[in-house]
Design a binder for these strands. Structure first.
Length: 367
DNA sequence: AACAAGACCAACCGCAGGACA
DNA sequence: CTGTCCTGCGGTTGGTCTTGT
């Protein structure tokens, strides 16, 4: 593994970029593309190392970058995604349209982290610091952590696919749908069959909105959760344990999606399953428990998307009516009123975090 | 007005890992 | 299979700006 010679060679300029340097870099990339970053500085007439040029381009000069203040929705998304993914800034950035990982990382470190800390919430675990948790709560948190692991892996896979699809060049979906998010890009990258019209998605929040997609009907929830958690309880810390479980889902999906077309280069079971899920969604299948049951006739199906199945998505949102008016209706209210107690507490916990954060804008003297 | 402290954020550093000869 | 090149990523630094005294 070679280290970039950038830091080892002398003669390269460091420090802030001047407008002239920006102009040179921009002009060169617009005309020739960046090609090899290491070769670029000499060709563009810059006294910078390639690494510095790449960073300047990706974090500042790229035309598809959104700058300026973070909106409330963006901040919510960052908090929620960070709870799932931790410091995986590139993955988080992939789900926040037009924001760079560096910008998100800075915003987290300078604003959001402090806000959570001042609210008595551990910004690493996203759990209340001083709150004494009972055994039941700890158990629920363990379950939620496990679900979060699963969802985190899924989000990361989606981000990877988005990156790959972007590398293939300008994306017609992107221009057609504006910033409507990574799910469409993933469809574009992975689906070979003609697609039905895609449902309208809230801007930038496709994955999060997916969590909102559906709740299990309350009576089925407990059976499903028991099945799920029994299967996962042997190794809560291992992602591979989750993936083992996912094979059941994979088999189920194969039953449901005879019309799927999976590229042959996705040999990895996990990756194949991710593609299959996305294709199912693209073909109009819902990935919620009931729809899978209908497709397969099996009531004991394990869903890969535990977060969605257990309703954790809704736990992360404080105001579904505001963000997702199309899905915030009967189901949301029904489940909110019928959830088992501890799950309801967890839901309240997440809601409280977001409420507190939302009620305390960045320029508030409180923060 | 001058200085200090804190906040902010662009840029850097170094490691990890994919691609390729 | 191995070594090198190159890019991507997360953590950190340090210069600049803002706020308080």
């Amino acid at each position: 593994m070679g280290r970039s010679p950038c830091s080892e060679k002398v003669g390269f300029k460091k420090g802030p970029w001047t407008p002239d340097e920006d102009h040179k870099l921009l002009a060169y990339i617009e005309q020739y593309g960046h090609g090899s970053w290491l070769a670029l500085p000499a060709k563009a007439g810059l006294q910078r190392c390639g690494k510095s040029c790449r960073l300047r381009w990706t974090n500042y000069l790229r035309p598809d970058i959104k700058r300026g203040r973070f909106s409330l929705q963006e901040e919510q998304s960052i908090i929620q995604l960070h709870a799932l993914l931790g410091n995986r800034w590139s993955v988080i950035a992939a789900h926040l349209s037009k924001r760079t990982d560096n910008e998100i990382k800075n915003h987290w470190n300078t604003h959001l982290k402090k806000r959570l800390t001042k609210l008595g919430i551990d910004p690493v675990t996203h759990m209340p610091k001083s709150h004494a948790l009972g055994p039941d709560q700890l158990k629920d948190i363990a379950n939620l952590n496990h679900m979060a692991q699963w969802e985190g892996a899924r989000l990361e896979a989606e981000a990877r696919l988005v990156r790959e699809s972007k590398l293939k060049g300008p994306n017609p979906f992107q221009t057609q749908l504006g910033s409507s998010g990574s799910a469409q890009l993933v469809y574009e990258a992975t689906i070979t069959a003609p697609l039905p019209p895609l449902p309208l998605q809230p801007l930038c929040l496709d994955v999060l909105s997916a969590w909102q997609g559906s709740w299990l009907k309350a009576p089925k929830y407990n059976d499903f959760a028991a099945h799920t958690f029994a299967a996962t309880s042997s190794s809560l810390d291992s992602l591979t344990s989750v993936l083992d479980i996912s094979k059941k889902g994979e088999a189920m999906i194969m039953n449901a999606g005879a019309e799927l077309e999976i590229p042959n280069d996705f040999q990895d079971p996990k990756e194949r399953m991710e593609i299959e899920l996305l294709q199912l969604q693209g073909l109009g299948y819902s990935t919620d428990h009931d729809d899978y049951s209908m497709a397969t006739g099996n009531e004991n199906i394990l869903l890969p998307n535990f977060m969605e199945a257990a309703g954790l998505g809704d736990m992360l949102f404080d105001s579904p009516n505001q963000l997702y008016p199309s899905i915030a209706g009967e189901n949301y209210g029904m489940v909110a009123g019928t959830c088992c107690g501890n799950l309801e507490e967890n839901k309240n916990y997440w809601n409280n975090i977001l409420n507190l954060v939302n009620c305390s804008p960045s320029d508030s003297p409180v923060f």
